[in-house]
Design a protein around this nucleic acid. Sequence first.
DNA 1: ATTGTGACGTTGC
DNA 2: TGCAACGCCACAA
Length: 110
Amino acid sequence: MTKNDNFFDKVYDVARQIPFGRVTSYGAIATYLGSARSARMVGWAMNNSGNQQPEVPAHRVVNKKGLLTGKHHFDGTNLMQQLLESEGIKVIDNQIQDLDTVFWNPMNEL
DNA sequence: ATTGTGACGTTGC
DNA sequence: TGCAACGCCACAA
């Protein structure tokens, strides 16, 4: 932690900028950061997101398919889905509905 | 320095 | 159109 996790920090920063009721994909963030091929790294960064003080809305970050792939990493089993549903996002079987509508593209907004 | 892994994405068949 | 395999970058051991 002594070093500035440039990549990680950026991921957290973008994730925190996700508006309420919106979601984004790892690839979108990775692409915005310039490392479109590091989509996996974005997810890896989320691993430490819980360690970050400004709690990163990792529940708003899903894969391109809108699938809650990382929900397994949350406390509960359906916690991530509960959070998304609380924001008005319809999630069925770990799959976000109307993804095109709730999708938030950092490149488009930022 | 090398190897392995990972909450993904894209291309190929 | 659906499923499989590869690629890829960054971090940890």
